[in-house]
Design a protein around this nucleic acid. Sequence first.
DNA 1: AACCTTCTCAACCGCCCCAGG
DNA 2: GCCTGGGGCGGTTGAGAAGGT
Length: 304
Amino acid sequence: MGRAPCCAKEGLRKGPWSAKEDLLLTNYIKENGEGQWRNLPKKAGLLRCGKSCRLRWMNYLRPGIKRGNFSQDEEDLIIRLHSLLGNRWSLIAGRLPGRTDNEIKNYWNTHLIKKLKIAGIQPKVTKKEPKKKPKTEKPRNKQDKMKNKKKKDQSLDTPQVVFVPKPIRISSGPLRNFSVEDVALLSTSSSDSPEILSHQYQILQKHIISEGSDTHPSTFLKSPNNIVSPSNSFEEVDNNNKDINIEDKIEEVAFIPCASNLLFDEVLLDGFCDLSNESMLEKVYEEYLQLISEKCYHDDPMLM
DNA sequence: AACCTTCTCAACCGCCCCAGG
DNA sequence: GCCTGGGGCGGTTGAGAAGGT
């Protein structure tokens, strides 16, 4: 007994929308508002499925939709949010005013993945659970429903430590003006690749030189005034503490002005790494310190 | 100019969740 | 308690555009 399709498919148009259809849909929604998508096509005089109308409106016709190129800031924000949220495009879109989930998803799949790969980053892949995942037992009654809800809540309440970036702005100094590629590369764990490590160092060096700073990487990495080590650049969120709202935390990250004001702790964070893996971050940080203070510094006359 | 390949993105599809009857 | 419909989401597709030979 399968579910009936959302609308009778016979005789309905598919494919690209014509200008006339767009006009009909826009006019109808202007007069009657959104919603009731199933009945909308009939009332609006469209030979389209309700879902198709909704999609067209949401992704294209709705007022306030930004079209065209993504700015550097938007790109950066998407990358950051994706590292936090995975492929939850609607959530990500909710934090990019004027952008739709579909557009962001497309942009991610066509541009950003490539960009990150070129930078040597394997973006976090958050494949959806297989369709035939063992379903959570269907709640049979109100009690079961409550039980399931409790279970869900509990999974959030598990004393699982989550580290979210604490936004600490570096208002001046050499760590500003990184490109997305630089951020991506800097945030890669370099433990297995001397090339990446060396490239990471070059990026730091390049930025220091281009900023005309006389500060050596080792200085700002060590200086408590300029940089915060991973151990204190992440807030430990105790999920048992009901006062802490993860949404708020995402908010904090999401609305930080981007590329030109990068936060170093985010540079470390953005490695599409497991956020809960603090030791990995510690490790990366130690690698930086070791590399910069011991080896490269002495090898590089530019910075002597 | 013609053909082929690659890229882009709007649109579709199928599934899920949830509210309401 | 069950069923159904509405709405929303993420993955995928395919037509058209752009680029390459």
